[in-house]
Amino acid sequence: MKVVIDGELCQGQGRCFSIAPSLFGFDDLGDGVVLGDGTLTAETLDLARLAQANCPEHAIFIEESS
């Protein structure tokens, strides 16, 4: 599983990087960015889902990685 942020939808609300600083950071304009390649483990999946469920812009997606 992989977490991604849709840069078109992200408006820099800042919820992801405060809820899950181990998974998300921010760029110079304050938009959220996925740290590393976004691969989720059994331990980090729930955290990613929590961030996803709190994103006001619905900009976070969790994908099955092939």
């Binding site: 408006q11 820099g12 800042g14 812009e57």
Partner: peptide, 23 residues
């Protein structure tokens, strides 16, 4: 409250620029 997709800072392109500061 763990699930809190609130819109206090607006939604879309005008999202509050001061939201990090305000928080």
């Amino acid at each position: 409250r763990a699930l809190n997709r609130h819109a206090a800072f607006g939604l879309g392109i005008h999202r509050c620029i001061g939201s990090n500061l305000a928080r």
